Computed example of a mutant assay.
Amino acid sequence: MTMKMTSLALIAAVALTAGCAHQRRDQLPPAPPSDMNPGDQGNGMDQGNVGNAAVPGSRADFLQSVTSDRVFFDTDSYSVDDRARAVLDAQAQWLNRNPNVRVTIEGHADERGTREYNLALGDRRANAVRDYLQSRGVSPARMQTISWGKERPAVDGHDESAWAQNRRAVTVVPE
């Protein structure tokens, strides 16, 4: 009987600890820096500014120097249109002036479609931007891509206006 009780206690202990090792896959990591307001000074720590001037090569310098840090896409598309090319040309010029800066290109989608579809679409959008910047002389070794799919909307809403702002790729210069 003692052997049976010991075995039962051991099985119960293993079952209890197995539940503790389970990681929740539906939790997202903290919001990326691209969600911050460029003008926010936060806690007063250095964010690439010296007085009123941005430090060359900093995130603040990037946001002041380029037309935008993001480009937008049509529904179910990852084609870089003329408007996006103008924004990406300004980004490429800045990146070529600052050859030591590495960037992350985030691909995003609107809320429609499955999670898997939107992750794949966000990936194609990020890669389209990377490929365009590479065609303008930016080394691919300086760029990494990530897809957030529909997980990180820029705007909450369930209409075309919100969806249009969420179909995007964002070039993020680290702090």
Rank of each mutant, 00 (worst) to 15 (best):
A9R: 07
I11A: 09
I11G: 03
I11H: 02
A12F: 07
A13R: 03
V14H: 01
V14K: 01
V14P: 01
L16N: 04
T17F: 13
G19R: 11
G19C: 10
C20D: 09
A21F: 12
H22R: 09
Q23I: 03
R24A: 15
R25S: 09
D26Q: 05
Q27R: 04
Q27I: 02
Q27L: 04
Q27E: 11
L28T: 02
P29I: 06
P30D: 15
P30L: 03
P32Q: 04
P32E: 12
P33R: 14
S34H: 12
S34R: 04
S34N: 07
D35C: 06
D35S: 10
N37L: 10
P38Q: 13
P38C: 12
P38V: 15
P38Y: 11
G39W: 14
Q41N: 11
G42H: 07
G42D: 08
G42N: 06
N43I: 10
M45C: 05
M45G: 07
G48V: 08
N49C: 07
N49Y: 14
V50D: 12
V50R: 06
G51S: 02
G51V: 04
N52T: 08
A53E: 15
P56F: 13
R59Q: 09
R59C: 01
R59N: 11
A60T: 12
D61I: 03
D61F: 06
F62I: 03
L63H: 07
V66E: 06
S68P: 01
R70V: 02
R70M: 08
R70T: 07
R70H: 04
F73H: 03
D74G: 09
D76Y: 06
D76N: 15
Y78C: 05
